[in-house]
């Protein structure tokens, strides 16, 4: 009987917690829909303190998760955080609100390299948050041969010692890069050309992991990997034997951005927030938490030398970087090719 009373009490507690949703709306608010943990709590608290705006945060873990909730409708998000190819498709589908540049004076702090990129040619809809690349991590304690590109990773001598992102589009774009084909030319003919290469490559892979590929490195289960630069930067910080190489054949540069979805109830607050994070001293806080490439030129000047020395965050040299464009329905052929090849075993 005691347990029943306890459970009843909990039910009541829950019932009282339910109506709280409606009340928060009267204050000035910002409904932020962002990658999990990508916006440091310090930044959110600082913004709330400075402006008196209450920030409601909801998280997602991939562009597609964000899209599915955004497209379902019925939600009132003011600010979302898509990557470049998702920005492009959202612009195409007219799901974004153009930004008012006058409300965001700090736009001047951005590195011109990151303004008006192909996914948003006029820079009207998106402001870059952080940029990064997809490249090769080499455990130099184990791999003694020089690794310069995808072909070296999959030359057959590192069989079952490789981790790659669990992302069909990324994987196919690497194969295309070795043929000199850009990552956005996903025609059926090009896909056919990529197939034989992938059927050589995929059986050599030991782990597919997009979330935390560093785990496999740190546990000693793999020696080579093609992963996000942020993962590479964390590994490098941990142990300098993990070096980061941008593939000679060309690499994917991703730009995570801030955008205002169409019909956002608090667009001004969203712009205030964008302006706030573009302040160099705030942007540095984000860099501290996430070792990606900061597109804010003024903020980069404030970074510590060792932060700028991290080759995964701030690569140097002659780079062949390309952003992804939206490929629409080609995604389904890519998925089939990769699903088909995954189950096969190395001979």
């Amino acid at each position: 009987m005691k347990t029943i009373r306890f459970v009843l009490a909990l039910t009541l507690l829950a019932a009282t917690a339910l109506p709280s949703y409606g009340q928060a709306k009267k204050k000035s608010v910002l409904n932020l829909f962002c990658w999990s943990e990508y916006v440091p709590q310090e930044v959110i608290d600082g913004f709330a303190k400075e402006t008196g705006i209450k920030v409601n945060v909801e998280n997602y873990a991939s562009n597609e998760e964000m899209l599915s909730k955004l497209l379902a409708g019925g939600s009132k998000y003011d600010l979302v955080q898509p990557s470049e190819y998702t920005v492009e498709s959202l612009i195409k589908a007219e799901k974004l609100e153009p930004l008012t540049a006058e409300n965001i004076p700090n736009l001047k702090n951005l590195d011109p390299k990151f303004a008006k990129m192909p996914h948003d040619p006029e820079g009207k809809y998106s402001v870059p948050w952080m940029a990064g690349t997809v490249g090769i991590v080499v455990n130099t304690a184990k791999v003694k041969t020089p690794i310069t590109g995808y072909k070296d990773v999959f030359d057959g001598t590192h069989k079952r010692r490789i981790v790659v992102l669990n992302d069909s589009r990324e994987i196919v774009s690497w194969a295309l890069a070795t043929l000199g084909i850009g990552p956005n030319d996903m025609t059926p003919e090009n896909l056919d050309k990529a197939k034989p290469i992938l059927s050589e490559w995929l059986p050599q892979v030991k782990v597919y992991d997009s979330d935390s590929p560093k785990t496999a490195f740190l546990n000693g289960d793999v020696d080579l990997g093609i992963v996000w630069s942020g993962e590479a930067a964390i590994l490098w910080k941990k142990d300098k034997k993990f070096t980061y190489v941008l593939p000679a054949e060309g690499a994917h540069q991703f730009i995570d951005s801030l955008c205002v979805p169409k019909g956002a109830p608090n667009k001004e607050n969203a712009e205030k927030f964008i302006n706030y994070i573009l302040k160099p001293e705030v942007s540095v806080l984000i860099s501290k938490e996430f070792p990606y490439t900061n597109p804010n030129a003024e903020a980069v000047k404030l970074l510590k030398p060792e932060q700028r020395a991290n080759p995964a965050s701030y690569p140097s040299g002659d780079l062949k970087l390309e952003t992804f464009k939206d490929i629409g329905k080609a995604a389904k052929d890519i998925d089939k090719v990769v699903t088909d090849l995954k189950g096969r075993k190395a001979r």
Partner: peptide, 27 residues
């Protein structure tokens, strides 16, 4: 995915990919 390394996809993984990667809800 986590303990098998994702090399041998299961039906759950493939379906997850349709919704979360390929954006092909109907399939």
């Amino acid at each position: 995915q986590l303990m098998g390394g994702g090399t041998d996809p299961t039906i759950g993984e493939v379906i997850q990919n349709q919704f979360m990667q390929a954006r092909d809800w109907p399939f």
